[in-house]
Design a protein around this nucleic acid. Structure first.
Lengths: 155, 155
DNA sequence: AAAAATTATATTGTGCACAATTAAATTTGA
DNA sequence: TCAAATTTAATTGTGCACAATATAATTTTT
């Protein structure tokens, strides 16, 4: 029986670095396309969420994107400056800030449809491989988000 | 014959977001382990490179990690403050700054060996799956780094 | 109902990323 | 040779990420 190979500290063998490098490269690939829309990559993600469902609170946006208010608040203020979203406290709970698309924000949706198309062309990857890789990454993130097996054994 | 499905703007269908979320989650998983070593994640990557080959220049570190001097210079100054590396201009070419491990930097190597072991336990992933996913990510990054087919057709 | 606990956002501070610019050293070439 | 081009780091400025803290509103508990 073969033993599991001992993990090393060699950069090229690390999954973490492959992930980190690929993620930054992906963002860099989006950058010129998004620049044409006046968006950064994290701003684009916020717009994706709002195009699906408008009027979410900062908390709900944060749950969807796994980002906290320290990241979202200034980002949303910049989107507000760009007249793509509005921010206002909810009357039923003044702690919550609701983010709504402006007309300009809604209008941007159509132009953004080209972005995933452009990227799909760039990838030279079958739809099956695309879906498989995407779902493996989701599964990996879920694994890492879950508490460790060892923890919480004794309540 | 089935047509390729039209790409959408739905967040959960995006490869880019799965990649972005998984990468941040991976960094978050490393954070407590690296904190015990007094390192951030990008600092850890620099140390990995130097443990493989000491005495590289800032440029060579940047090529290996795909990071520029705007990122590396302040990071390396922090590693210097922590007494993990030294920085000095090379005499044969004064433009280059050579980064060398201090004794403390070399000593840290042994303690760092636990990091990939700890992560491997956390992953619940076969060695084969680990390698396959890692190499798919490398291949994806290489795809995205390559110039587009359309470009540079007319010299 | 008043105090305590919880929730939601904002603020502050640190550390990346990365574009753009600057400055200095070296190499190239007329 | 010496002026122009190139190379290498550093600097500056913007925008994330994220921890820690603060503040205000709401809910729960007594």
């Amino acid at each position: 029986m073969m033993a599991t190979p001992e993990p090393t500290l060699l950069l090229d063998e690390q999954l973490c670095f492959a992930l980190y490098a690929a993620s930054r490269r992906m963002t860099a690939t989006y950058r010129p396309m998004l620049e044409a829309l006046g968006l950064t990559y994290p701003q684009y993600l916020v717009m994706l969420v709002l195009w699906e469902r408008d009027g979410l609170t900062v908390r709900e946006l944060g749950e969807r994107l796994q980002l906290d208010s320290g990241t979202l608040t200034p980002l949303l203020k910049r989107l507000e400056q760009a007249d793509l979203v509005g921010r206002r406290r909810r009357q039923r709970d003044e702690r919550e800030v609701e983010i709504t698309l402006t007309q300009a924000g809604r209008n941007l949706h159509e132009r953004a449809l080209d972005v995933p198309r452009c990227l799909a062309n760039r990838l030279c990857m079958s739809a099956d491989d695309f879906i498989r890789l995407r779902d493996e990454l989701k599964s990996l993130a879920a694994q890492l988000a879950a508490p460790t097996q060892e923890r919480d054994q004794n309540p």
